[in-house]
Design a protein around this nucleic acid. Structure first.
Lengths: 199, 199
DNA sequence: ACCTGAACACCGTTCAAGT
DNA sequence: ACCTGAACACCGTTCAAGT
């Protein structure tokens, strides 16, 4: 949307907005959210922290950009033959795949709002399938929202302990959370099917 | 559990663990998570930041203590006459009441693990009701977990934007989230009823 | 026993200056 | 046009010192 800094004259840029975001995701994946300092991002790009401010107005902007970068990488395919609840299931699995691929970013994703345009684009295929099944957009949106909230909360419980916090020793293993995830998701899907398609 | 510092001799303490936690909750409620610095907590208690370390080993310990303080204040009553799903509903409403009473603490509550003992105590009445209805503890636990995850995710979506982040202008109002919350919760409860009590 | 002052190693961010 | 060095106002945390 806004014009990126162009080299009409003078030196070509050593870095850029996209490179900053990519480096930030790498740092988070490798060392967690706390390690994502402006100085560290700069070091990753062999540049000082101050140069970053040419491309993003501050650390908060970096975090917001990371959230949107991760959300756009969510992918899932809707099977038009399958019942409409399957579209919600596939949305859930696709979103969850992204979350578990970036466990240290989950607290960030959970607490930062997603750009509405990007959020809408992500859920569009699922919503379209519900619409094709005769479900009003208002109800479809509520269902997608609810599934999304459950996903976020579930991923947080599984991997969401913040950077410095030790997980309690009685903490359940990954298999357990996988099981709870399926149980909860299927309950919600079954409930929506009952609610929206009248038993 | 661990013996609190007692004044066997010398000066009586000006502050204490509980006072620190209380002051911390006040700061969060008033000015948000970012405002909760050791120096600020100290100022609230008319003491320097360094004195806090006598009672809690650091900022992370303060945050953990705040989480547990807030979770223990969750209250709900189970109606033994009502269907077992009503116990889950009341648990959800009680938990949600606490979350919405401390909106600026929601990101903290969502990302910090709860002390297992406290967490178990909070959910015990609901679990007991499910057990009385003949639902195995394993299934009951999965249901409670799922409802809790949905609650957390939902509250985050509603109030969870982190301290410095502006909510997007297209953001839905509180009524909308209240509606989505009901829809999602009832779908999940309906699904569990079907799953566990066989339609 | 309890609290403090000074200090250390970090932050994010600004601003004027270099090339 | 792009990048940097120095500086500022903050952090959390330590440690020896006061009373």
């Amino acid at each position: 949307m806004s014009t990126p800094p162009r080299a009409k004259a003078g030196r070509p840029p050593q870095i850029g907005r996209e490179a900053i975001i990519t480096a930030s995701v790498q740092v988070i994946d490798a060392d967690g959210l706390d390690a994502l300092t402006m100085r560290r991002i700069g070091a990753e790009l062999e540049v000082t922290a101050m140069s970053l401010y040419r491309y993003l107005p501050g650390r908060a902007a970096v975090l917001a950009a990371v959230v949107n970068r991760l959300v756009v990488e969510v992918r899932f395919e809707v099977d038009p033959q399958a019942p409409w609840t399957d579209a919600l299931r596939r949305f859930a699995l696709g979103y969850r795949r992204m979350l578990l691929a970036h466990p240290r970013a989950v607290p960030l994703l959970a607490t930062h709002p997603v750009d509405p345009t990007i959020g809408h684009a992500m859920t569009a295929p699922a919503l379209a399938r519900l619409r094709a099944a005769g479900i009003p957009d208002q109800d479809g949106l509520a269902a997608v929202q609810s599934v999304g909230c459950f996903l976020t909360g579930q991923a947080l419980a599984q991997v969401g302990a913040p950077p410095g916090v030790r997980r309690p020793p009685a903490h359940a293993g990954a298999e357990c959370y996988e099981h709870w995830f399926t149980i909860g998701l299927e309950a919600m899907l079954g409930g929506f099917q009952q609610q929206l398609t009248g038993r």
